[in-house]
């Protein structure tokens, strides 16, 4: 028993050192996730305003952005999302593990870039989508998810990941 503890006392810190060393070294790199298209999961949720959501809302090209009022990175990407919505990008919010009043206050205070936000207080839809935290953004084309970004959506990721996907979709359906 003592042997095990002794070994752990040394191995655990070494492991943590290696992990953090790797994090430091790779913190500059950026890897794009490949995504297989799949349909949006079925869900029974309402918008923050309490309205029902039709599947036709996801026709054409739209972005589904997972956000929450407690999420600091969401605040960071908010100006960029606002810019996207001003450029007529169909932006739909998925309000994740949040209270309705906090979410509404947040939108009121910062501005609402979303066409509407789906209220998902327990993270049901988010779970089905495979969300690991906020923020995350899904690219949806004709009710099918074709792209996925975890973390902050910014100009760089938008251009390097989502724009090529949108171009290829537009090339298929002229």
């Amino acid at each position: 028993m003592n042997r095990v503890f002794s070994l752990l006392l040394i191995l655990l810190p070494v492991l943590i050192l290696i992990i953090y060393g790797k994090i430091l070294l790779t913190s500059q790199e950026d890897v794009t996730a490949v995504y297989d298209p799949k349909p949006i999961p079925q869900f029974q949720l309402l918008t923050l305003q309490g309205q029902e959501i039709l599947p036709t809302e996801f026709d054409g090209i739209s972005l589904l952005n997972v956000w929450a009022s407690w999420c600091i990175t969401c605040l960071v990407e908010h100006p960029f999302l606002t810019k996207l919505s001003q450029n007529n990008i169909n932006l739909i919010g998925l309000n994740y593990k949040d209270s309705k009043s906090n979410a509404q206050q947040w939108l009121k205070k910062r501005g609402d870039p979303y066409k509407f936000s789906i209220h998902d207080p327990r993270g049901d839809l988010a779970f089905d989508l495979g969300v690991t935290g906020a923020p995350e953004t899904f690219l949806v084309a004709n009710q099918e998810i074709i792209g996925h970004i975890q973390g902050e959506l910014n100009q760089e990721k938008w251009e390097s990941i989502f724009v090529p996907l949108i171009r290829s979709i537009e090339a298929q359906n002229p």
Partner: peptide, 16 residues
């Protein structure tokens, strides 16, 4: 941090 170093993505683990 681990997630970010694996695939370059940022997530917040928040108050919940």
């Amino acid at each position: 941090l681990i997630l970010e170093s694996l695939n370059g993505n940022k997530v917040s683990i928040g108050p919940p």
